[in-house]
Design a protein around this nucleic acid. Structure first.
Length: 278
DNA sequence: CGGACAACCTGGTTGC
DNA sequence: TGCAACCAGGTTGTCC
């Protein structure tokens, strides 16, 4: 569920709450979410570690712990990280509870059980599945128009598919991909290698804009997403095309269409995002 | 290379 | 009301 803006919102919440706290215990209600090391070792290694700092890479959330350990979290579709200042009985779909010395709990809640965590030492980042293949952070300098254009030039796949692959930029998901393509006026089926330099630049700017707007709105809450305080975001009220099949395009009032690309539902305005090129 | 599809899971919505 | 079908913000693996 959560894409870059949602993960970043949670990270900022946790950055205010966790640094300085020491993990006293971890209860695994569904140990399957622990990918590395084995669940027993995971719990043993977490105990007594302090949270020093939070971080994020694409949709991966990091808690930097003492002794050089890194706790990496991927929330996938329905994962939530919920902080409670006092003891809280676990909800139905709570999969793990981190309790801190002196009070406070972090609950990992995940209806669909897709979410995953890893606990690794520095230099063992390759233990974290998928992390290595990530493209640049879209809100940092490395995500230049030239870089995006080069990524596009190398593949014939639809531009929507490229955006979802995480290779061109880390952290874009289904919602922000559709919103960025709308903002850039590009048809989601456009072959990536048919984008001109100007179009790639426009898309790069659009990606950065929608992600920044998403963060400002504290994320998009459609069904499952909540921040670390259990609050909804508000970007769902600002979506132009995503989830708006049959409703009017805000620019031209043409009905928004829904199609399936790369197995994912895709929303666009057939007029504002008419197919150009090939 | 990349597309199509299934898998991993559970729950909510839609339509008959 | 019941029930089946379809849908869901993500990633990985298999087959062709």
């Amino acid at each position: 569920m959560p894409e870059l803006p949602e993960v970043e919102t949670i990270r900022r919440d946790l950055q205010r709450l966790l640094p300085g706290k020491v993990i006293e215990d971890v209860k695994l209600l569904f140990p399957g979410f622990v990918k590395y090391p084995d669940p027993g070792e995971f719990v043993r290694l977490c105990r007594g570690k302090a949270v020093l700092q939070t971080g994020r890479r694409g949709k991966y959330l990091f808690l930097h712990l003492s002794e050089g350990f890194l706790l990496a979290v991927h929330l996938r579709m329905t994962g939530r990280l919920l902080y409670y200042p006092k003891q809280e009985p676990p909800a139905l779909h709570t999969r793990g509870v981190f309790s801190f010395a002196g009070g406070g709990e972090l609950h990992f809640h995940d209806v669909r059980k897709f979410g995953t965590m890893w606990l690794v030492e520095p230099g063992a980042l390759d233990r974290i599945g998928g992390l290595k293949a990530l493209g640049p952070e879209p809100l940092r300098e490395g995500f230049s128009p030239a870089f995006l254009h080069e990524c596009c030039r190398k593949t014939t796949r639809p531009i929507k598919s490229l955006l979802l692959s995480q290779e061109a930029a880390a952290g874009i998901g289904n919602i922000y991909a559709d919103e960025a393509l709308f903002k850039a006026g590009l048809n989601p089926r456009r072959r990536a290698n048919s984008l001109t330099r100007e179009e790639a630049e426009k898309l790069r700017d659009a990606i950065r804009e929608v992600l920044r707007e998403g963060i400002s709105a504290r994320g998009t809450s459609r069904r499952d997403y909540l921040d670390a305080g259990g609050r909804s975001g508000s970007y769902q009220d600002r979506l132009k095309v995503y989830g708006r099949k049959g409703q009017e395009c805000p620019l031209c009032r043409c009905p928004v269409q829904r199609v399936v690309i790369a197995g994912r539902s895709t929303h666009f305005c057939p007029a504002c995002q008419a197919v150009k090129g090939e």
